[in-house]
Amino acid sequence: MADTTVSQASADKVGGEYFAVADFVALLKPRVMSLSVFTAFVGMALAPSELHPILMGVAIFCIALGAGASGAINMWYDRDIDAVMSRTRARPIPMGRVEPETALAFGIILSMGAVTLLGLATNWVAAGLLGATIAYYVVVYTMWLKRRTTQNIVIGGAAGALPPLVGWAAATGEISLAPLSLFLLIFFWTPPHFWALALYRNDDFARAKLPMLPLIKGAASAKRHILAYTLILPPLSTLPYFAGIAGTGYLVIALSLGAYFVARAAILLRTAETESVPAGGVQPHDLPAKKLFAFSILYLFVLFATLLLEPVLRTLAGLL
């Protein structure tokens, strides 16, 4: 199936007689975009402001476009390493379905459009933050840190943590401690999430010569780092409660899930004493890392969904 697609793409590349909207959608990294949109929406919904529903929709659309645009520019810059990693080699540029320059132009035009429209629809604090997020992801993470340091996803993770701030700023025109608590939560969640992925995708990152922590410092060190960051998460996840944007229901869920996250990281660390990084393929001892990676996604989703739904449930309970 994959071979058929590759040969079809090669044939299509000749002479530029190929164009598909789906490839431009793929350039926007829809899955990464969905996380940004969701966390931005939570930030916007929790903010003490009555933004017009249409403007709220436009703001979310702009944040989605901005996140997608930075993904397109990232794919333009990383086209060489995308081509050698199994996880990314089916992307439109390595497949020859979109010219690199077209992806770059697409990303730049979308970025400018998203920032301008967000500024006109809401305010220029939110637009400035969106522009800064795109610039940070493209310049600081993609161009500067990603290929240079084992701390690439730690510092670069700030880009993924900014959308709730953009959402909050779109609704209120300012930044306060409450959305900062959401920023910190995503910021400290990112390293264990990505290092768990890097642990079982080690071969892929090695082929691309990316200095991922498990590759440079070893699996045992990466697992210790994962546990350290995971230990920070439960106390950090209480900040929205103390900032006044979450209730006791959230607090109980956050602490329970945080404890389970720590337990999963401890299980992962225990496997480090007897096993090294696998030489290739999915090994049975990749399982703790895979489970941690999957749980990390659920953890963040449940926490943000609780933040969003708790006030709704409380209102409904009050009506009954």
Partner: peptide, 23 residues
């Protein structure tokens, strides 16, 4: 392919104008 591309660009431009007008 050229027709598809032109159609996509045209629709995007119309969409952008409508969006700006709505705002």
């Amino acid at each position: 392919a050229l027709r598809r591309k032109n159609r996509a660009v045209a629709l995007s431009l119309v969409g952008a104008v409508v969006l700006f007008y709505f705002v």
